[in-house]
């Protein structure tokens, strides 16, 4: 860790076109300070996933740059890339994609083991991560035997085990029943880690993230406190974002 703690995430002028020519990002600038929780909102096809895949160097080759905790993402530098992937913990939308090992324990251990941890230190990481999401008692079960909400929580543990600088969640509330949704929110609020949450779920953003940004048409179209942003009906309408029926962001206190 560095002394004066650079921001967890710095994206500057990031532009990217897919090999087939589709331009997805047109110059994205975004800085997320250490310990912040930021919601990344945007309609389908806005480039949210493309942006997320740049954060740990899976996609690259466009203009601009990404720095994670001060370290630039450089796909040619294998060693730095490994460190980047430790620092950026991405929780993908479908936990069945994220959990690929035969047991929960092995899955949570997969990341830290790739970092070279073994033995008691590895066990400790796995235990800690599972404890933080309240899933320690299912450690020896196969992921496919867990409920969807449990799998999502284990998926969060798989990246927590790498002790990331920033936790990136892709639609964390999708397909969860209200109780699992609340439980996950409580867990996320209790974590002492920077969070970037990609979502369409505006009440969830209001509940969890003090700050929100809208990614639309490949650029950051707005960057404000979540409550401000959600009460601006014109802005939301312009970017195809809608509040669910009956939800009043001004009344939602947090």
């Amino acid at each position: 860790m560095t002394a004066q703690a650079p921001p967890s995430l710095e994206v500057t002028g990031l532009a990217y076109a897919y090999p087939d020519g589709t331009q997805a990002l047109y110059g994205v600038d975004l800085t997320v300070g250490r310990g912040e929780r930021v919601a990344l909102l945007g309609p389908n096809g806005a480039g949210k996933t493309t942006l997320v895949l740049h954060l740990n160097g899976i996609l690259h080759g466009g203009l601009g740059g990404v720095r994670v905790g001060g370290l630039p993402v450089d796909p040619k530098d294998k060693k730095a890339l490994r460190e980047i992937r430790r620092r950026v913990g991405i929780v993908f939308q479908d936990p069945d994609d994220q959990l690929f090992m035969p047991t929960v324990r092995e899955d949570v251990g997969f990341g830290p083991a790739n970092l070279g941890l073994r033995g008691p230190e590895l066990d400790r990481r796995v235990r800690d991560a599972l404890t933080r999401v309240g899933m320690l008692d299912v450690a020896d079960r196969p992921p496919q035997h867990l409920s969807f909400g449990q799998r999502r929580r284990v998926a969060v543990a798989t990246v927590l085990a790498m002790e990331p600088e920033i936790l990136v969640l892709d639609e964390p509330s999708s397909n969860l029943d209200p109780a699992s949704r609340r439980e996950l929110a409580e867990i996320l609020l209790g974590l002492d880690v920077t969070v970037l949450m990609v979502t369409h779920d505006l009440p969830y953003a209001a509940e969890l993230c003090p700050r929100s940004v809208i990614l639309s048409g490949g650029v950051i179209a707005a960057d404000r406190p979540t409550r401000d942003l959600l009460t601006d009906a014109d802005l939301l309408a312009e970017h195809r974002l809608e509040l669910p029926f009956g939800f009043d962001p001004a009344a939602a206190v947090r």
């Binding site: 490994r82 950026v88 993908f92 690929f100 990341g111 990246v159």
Partner: peptide
Amino acid sequence: RVHLAMVSRGYD
């Protein structure tokens, strides 16, 4: 997608 998730956690 699984491969992506693996690479994101340092699979080589």
